[in-house]
Design a protein around this nucleic acid. Sequence first.
DNA 1: TGTCAAACATACGCTAGCGTATGGAGTAGG
DNA 2: CCTACTCCATACGCTAGCGTATGTTTGACA
Lengths: 190, 190
Amino acid sequence: MARKHKAAQRSPRLDSAIWIEAALEALANGGVEAVRVEPLAKALAITKGSFYWHFVDRRALIDAMLASWSQGRIAAIRQQSGGAGAPDMRLRHLAELYTRHANMRGLAIELSIRALARSDARAAEAVRAVDSERLKQVGQLFGALGWTAADAQARAVLFYSYLFGESLLDAKAVTVRARETAIRALLAPP
Amino acid sequence: MARKHKAAQRSPRLDSAIWIEAALEALANGGVEAVRVEPLAKALAITKGSFYWHFVDRRALIDAMLASWSQGRIAAIRQQSGGAGAPDMRLRHLAELYTRHANMRGLAIELSIRALARSDARAAEAVRAVDSERLKQVGQLFGALGWTAADAQARAVLFYSYLFGESLLDAKAVTVRARETAIRALLAPP
DNA sequence: TGTCAAACATACGCTAGCGTATGGAGTAGG
DNA sequence: CCTACTCCATACGCTAGCGTATGTTTGACA
């Protein structure tokens, strides 16, 4: 009724999605400062005329990127922790997702966004939303392992802190054995 | 003999030191991208004519900053872990240094440099040097707590991973109690 | 088939920041 | 005193990237 042409309703977010995708790729490689309109346009082989039709400015792209990431992570953790299987196996599977060599891109995005969140309120809000859901879900898994509610929450914090912190250390300093030992200690039942 | 004037030898690193100091301050606040010559000059109330006398370019400042940080951290960990006192007390003291509210600046610098190290070889080398020494020293402390050499090393990795990783999580998600519980678990003897 | 709006292209002005070139103040030594 | 060197100021050119203004194409729809 409001729109005269159906084409206007066909896929309003599908074209801007390629910009968000390219932005996430740049974010993974070079941090937020690498998310720049003109370089992205070159990478996509289109011009920034397209960009400024879909987004008001660069900040809008970053916000859309944060929203996309936030929603995706929340949906993912709900799916990953909500299935069947023993809780310790599910935790181990979650830990595998942030091993250094698997899911490099996801890890890089994660770290870039958290770095940004230290000085950007909207990024901090996205991180808050994701962490809230993750700690809730993983806390429940630790609870299923036998920890009290408070200790399960502390274990969840320890769990995610380790995963992200480990990727900040020198890669060669973290041996496979050290990592396995650490994970085993984290997932040990009370 | 080589120099005709003694003034040339008076303090060759003392003037460039203020640039490094200002650069570290900017790094702590806004990451490497905030380490820019002209803004730093304004903050120091001098002109960039001074800068380009002391440094060949912006990269040289970043390298000097990395060297300064690296040397400082290595000297610090040797002093902090080499004194007297029970090993668990010394570990706890080390953990306090990276509590969120104490040593904010040091933590911010740490995270910014590690973020840079993901895409910068020289930053990665600085991180490698610091981590090598820290893990060695802290590994010895865990060894003194009764862990085997391999497990002590894994505990050291876990220790530092937690400290840095915790500061990446949403601040409100990490309660004081969760932190205390986690630290206690990390420092528990075998 | 002509119209209209979506989607992109083109061209422009503007600013921040890098690096250079050159000038000038201070100072120590001869 | 005057020379030479250190240290900083001033002024300039240059590029990358942001945002705007204005074409140009394409496809749906009456």
